[in-house]
């Protein structure tokens, strides 16, 4: 009798420990590693921009939170408070795509030149005056 009780209690105890461990792991799970994550979509900067300019709501629902491999022309490289920002833009529109790099990739931003074609991987947040991409890295 006592043996059974002991087994049941230790069984429950182990179950609780494992559950807590898994819960803690889930709670502390890190952000997706942008370098190793596979892109959901590969797009031209111009195309993505037009999608948002045509129908912002629809584009937001379609593209926000997606990891996008973006190809476009560098219009501007700047830093704000330690964050590097690459702006992709073509000559036809006022709006652009603003890509904020992860801090680890800041050093790669220095190698870029205005007018250069670049491929950037990042997560789309949505649109304000421009399309906004966060957690970006320079792929090529």
């Amino acid at each position: 009798m006592k043996n059974n009780k002991f087994r049941i209690i230790s069984g429950i105890f182990i179950f609780v420990i494992i559950s807590l461990f898994l819960l803690l792991k889930s709670y502390n799970k890190p952000h997706k590693d942008i370098r190793t994550s596979k892109a959901d979509l590969t797009l031209n900067a111009e195309y993505l921009l037009n999608q948002f300019l045509e129908d912002e709501d629809a584009a937001s629902k379609k593209y926000a939170d997606n990891i996008i491999l973006l190809k476009g022309e560098v219009f501007e490289i700047s830093t704000h408070d330690g964050n590097s920002v690459i702006t992709l833009k073509n000559q036809y529109s006022d709006a652009s795509i603003i890509c904020q790099l992860i801090p680890e990739d800041n050093i790669n931003a220095l190698k870029l030149k205005k007018g250069q074609n670049v491929t950037i991987k990042g997560i789309c947040s949505g649109f304000l005056l421009d399309v906004i991409m966060v957690r970006c890295i320079i792929v090529k």
């Binding site: 502390n28 952000h31 926000a64 939170d65 408070d81 947040s125 949505g126 906004i132």
Partner: peptide
């Protein structure tokens, strides 16, 4: 860090917009 803000210096009006999805938390 992607907050958009415009000030009209003639009137002092200010308009600020931000995307909720651009808020970065340490814990995913």
């Amino acid at each position: 860090n992607q907050v958009l803000s415009i000030i009209d210096t003639k009137t002092g009006q200010i308009a600020i917009q931000l995307l909720m999805k651009s808020f970065f938390f340490k814990k995913a």
